[in-house]
Design a protein around this nucleic acid. Structure first.
Lengths: 130, 130
DNA sequence: ATGGGTGCAAATCCTTTGCATCTGC
DNA sequence: GCAGATGCAAAGGATTTGCACCCAT
């Protein structure tokens, strides 16, 4: 999956995979610069798109900071803080029944390929601040 | 819920509620201009935030076109086209068990307030193009 | 020499902000 | 007259693009 990657792409993939959070393109840029100081921001964006296209990473939606990337490619769910926007990985033990998903998808003419549950609420840090 | 709104806010809320799709701020702006030609884009953004804050509408995540708004405030789910990004309302008849949601939220220290299921796949229009 | 990948800078796009003006009370 | 709302234009921030350059083939 990754032996075709060049040095920049390799470094970027390593960073996304090694990140504990879901880094934005800018965060990836800053981190990759420590290893490859001459890399340009445009290359980071280009490579992130390629990696997402290739399925090595996933592009999560944008929030106020920008687009976030996730190297955790197996199906999983997310918890999102309604206050600060923090995005945390979760895994629902009991998923949604796939018949229900299929039915809902069919109802709007969509060919189902995956799904994700998002739960919203206050994260631990924001509970304290309230 | 809306008798405290002024004319601009009223017009904007009407437009979001009357929209069949999930309009972006720019779309709302263009539509509200037909009714109130002097309105500024900044006011549209300000009012949309206020309405979202007040719970009259919901702010959906941003996609390539920008931030989308939804006047459909009851809990529901979405189908998202992986090709063109189209965002469609769906409702899963069989939801996720609330115990599972609670458990997952607790596991990451989040106080659960709502949830949403997202299904991904090709929308009808994009199936044809493939 | 050739083509893809790269860096830089400029351009774009959406969104926010500053500020002077206008409005309703 | 004042406080809040508004329009306009400028600023801000993320992402994309144009283009010349460089490297490996």
């Amino acid at each position: 999956m990754d032996d075709t990657l060049n040095a920049n792409a390799r470094a970027i993939l390593d960073i996304v995979q090694g990140a504990k959070n879901h880094p934005t393109a800018l965060e990836v840029y800053e981190r990759v610069r420590r290893v490859r100081p001459h890399i340009g921001l445009a290359t980071v964006y280009r490579v992130l798109h390629q990696l997402a296209e290739a399925g090595c990473i996933k592009e999560l939606g944008r929030d106020s900071e920008g687009c976030r990337y996730d190297a955790h490619t197996e199906r999983h769910d997310h918890a999102i803080c309604t206050e600060c926007g923090a995005l945390l990985d979760i895994l629902l033990e009991v998923g949604v029944s796939s018949e229900a998903l299929q039915a809902a998808a069919q109802a709007v003419g969509v060919v189902l390929s995956s799904h994700e549950v998002r739960i919203y609420g206050l994260c631990a840090a924001c509970q304290v601040k309230e």
